[in-house]
Structure formats: structure tokens, C-alpha cells
Write a protein that binds this DNA or RNA. Structure first.
Length: 301
DNA sequence: AATGGTGTCAACCGCGACCTG
DNA sequence: TCAGGTCGCGGTTGACACCAT
């Protein structure tokens, strides 16, 4: 991602630099930042600290608005900005937090150290809304939320567990996800679940049946209707891209494991719209307030 | 090889909240 | 108290890369 962005901007930067040299005016610059501008901003902040962005922009000699400087620093130049694709943990956390807080990007970003609100917002718009489009439904519709809850999030949980089991990919993110989940949970049972199980990623895979013994009556309903498979050998081949998860085969596999009628499911290649209908059926009786909370995902494992 | 469509992401814009004199 | 300045957030845009035809 970083490399792509860098190569993408190089020709643009050359043009911008030429224009800047030719112009020499005092009007504010806009558009992509040049390397020199970046260095100027980095050096100035290293010496004087951040904040007071308008004054900073003037003092540093940057022909940029304070807003532009702030954005460049926070979203790109800050040393702790994390680059690269979102891990399964992070994706899961984003979905969960968005279900709770909506488009509060900065609030969500605060739970993912190194990630910016802009990055998360872009992720949501490009990836999540794409899935909604594939399902031919609105991102805010119950149909889509059900698909998220019963298809995508369990899938992400699987991937997160696999990454942790492999000893890579997630890093400390699981711990922060747990912390965030704990912070956003309101019930004692949720806290218990977060502390006992979420902090141990491998348990996500192995507690499929054991965790159900401690379920509340409500979550037992979830378990009965929408129990998801734990590790399945065939799934190993599906652990790469998100879109794979939406393949008919994968969805069918999950739905079948969830108790759907084999005969009906395998009669033909069901289009995704029909699959989402199945999902909707499973979701009956599930509390509607938070439609894809991490709590429910862990209960289903 | 050319072209049009689509996805991605950095950057900008508008607005409301907050701060300061 | 109030007006102007500043900050931060969420929505939107524009440019580029990639892919399909």
C-alpha cells in the first residue's frame, strides 16, 4: 500500500515542484505534498512539536493551510502511523465498533493504534460497502447486517485465529481488540468472555462447543440457530482475500454447518441474494440492537 | 495496444465545537 | 458575553493504478 502510494505520487510531485518553482507566489498550495514539504513539516514538528497548525504552517514556511498540515501529519507523516492491509483482528474490530458507534471514525480509530480515521473510513467505504453492493442491499439494511454477523465476522474470527495460531499477522492487535471489546461491553458476561477467551486467540478455534455451556438463554438461541463451524480443513484454502469468503461455496459451507437444509442448499448454485435470505432466516430471534457484536461472534465459536 | 470501468487512497471541504482575548 | 480564530470530524472529490474487454 505504502509502496503503491509512493510510486503513484512521484510524477505528480515532480509537476507540483515545477509549478511551485515557477510560481513563486504567496498563495496557498493545494494538492499532493512534495518531498520537500514533507521534510519541512517533519523537521519543524521535531523541533517545535505539533499543534497550533495555522501558526505552525506559517512559521515553517509552508504555503499550506494549517488544516492541510495537520492532515498530512496525522494521516501520513506521523512516525507511529501503521501502514499496510488491515489484519483480520482489525477488520473484526472495525465492524464491531461501527455496529456500536456508526460513522464515528475518529472514535473507532482511537481503538486501533497507528490507524487513522481516514484509513478506516476508506476501508469502510471501499471494502464493506462493496460487499453490500455484491449482496445487492444497503449497508444499513438488516439483510446486510445479518450477512455481516453470520458470514463475514465469523469468517474474520477464523482468519484472526489462524493468524495467531501461525504466530503472525495480528501481533498485539488481539490484545487491543480485547481491550476495546471490554471497554465497549456493558454486561458482566461480556467482560467475562473478553477476559477469559478473547485474550487467547487459539481458544476462539477450540471452544466451539465448550463455550456454549455458559451461554445465557439469549445466546443459546444464537447457538442453536447459527452455530458456526470451527476449523474445517476446506477452509484453509479460503484464507486469503475477503471476496473469497463471499463465494457461494464458502457461504454454503457455513450455512450448512449452521443447520440449513442440505438438499435445498445444494440443489443449485444459489445467488448471493438467496443466500442472504437464508441468513436472514437464521437471524430470527437475535437481539436487534447491535447486529454484529463481537460478543455474539465469540459465543458462536 | 487502446480504452473504458472500477477500486483505492490522499487530500480537500464544510460545519460544528471549542478556545481565547 | 461575544466575536474571531482554531481544531477536529465526517463527507466528498480527484488522480492514479489495475483490470477487463
Amino acid at each position: 500500500m505504502m509502496a503503491m502510494a509512493a510510486t503513484k505520487q512521484e510524477p505528480e510531485r515532480e509537476r507540483e515542484e515545477e509549478a511551485a518553482e515557477e510560481g513563486g507566489g504567496t498563495e496557498l498550495r493545494r494538492g499532493p505534498w512534495t518531498v520537500d514539504e514533507d521534510l519541512t513539516l517533519i523537521n519543524y514538528i521535531a523541533d517545535h512539536g505539533e499543534g497550533r497548525w495555522n501558526a505552525l504552517a506559517r512559521a515553517a514556511g509552508l504555503k499550506r493551510t494549517g488544516k492541510s498540515c495537520r492532515l498530512r501529519w496525522l494521516n501520513y507523516l506521523r512516525p507511529d502511523v501503521k501502514r499496510g492491509d488491515f489484519t483480520a483482528d482489525e477488520q473484526l474490530l472495525i465492524l464491531d465498533l461501527h455496529s456500536r458507534w456508526g460513522n464515528r471514525w475518529s472514535k473507532i480509530a482511537a481503538q486501533l493504534p497507528g490507524r487513522t480515521d481516514n484509513e478506516i473510513k476508506n476501508y469502510w467505504r471501499t471494502r464493506v460497502q462493496k460487499h453490500a453492493k455484491q449482496l445487492n442491499c444497503d449497508v444499513n439494511s438488516k439483510r446486510f447486517k445479518d450477512a455481516m454477523r453470520f458470514l463475514w465476522m465469523p469468517r474474520l474470527a477464523e482468519r484472526a485465529a489462524a493468524q495467531h495460531a501461525a504466530g503472525g499477522g495480528g501481533g498485539d492487535v488481539s490484545a487491543l481488540t480485547m481491550a476495546a471489546a471490554t471497554a465497549t461491553n456493558t454486561g458482566a458476561a461480556s467482560m467475562e468472555m473478553a477476559n477469559d477467551e478473547y485474550c487467547s486467540p487459539s481458544s476462539v478455534v477450540t471452544t466451539t462447543t465448550s463455550s456454549s455451556s455458559s451461554l445465557t438463554s439469549e445466546s443459546t438461541t444464537h447457538d442453536d440457530k447459527a452455530a458456526m463451524p470451527a476449523v474445517n480443513g476446506d477452509w484453509a484454502a479460503m484464507q486469503c482475500a475477503d471476496h473469497e469468503f463471499w463465494s457461494t461455496a464458502s457461504a454454503l459451507q457455513q450455512l450448512t454447518a449452521a443447520g440449513a437444509d442440505h438438499q435445498l442448499l445444494f440443489q443449485a448454485d444459489l445467488p448471493l441474494q438467496d443466500l442472504s435470505g437464508w441468513v436472514q432466516g437464521f437471524s430470527e430471534g437475535v437481539s436487534p440492537e447491535i447486529l454484529w457484536s463481537l460478543d455474539d461472534i465469540w459465543r458462536m465459536q
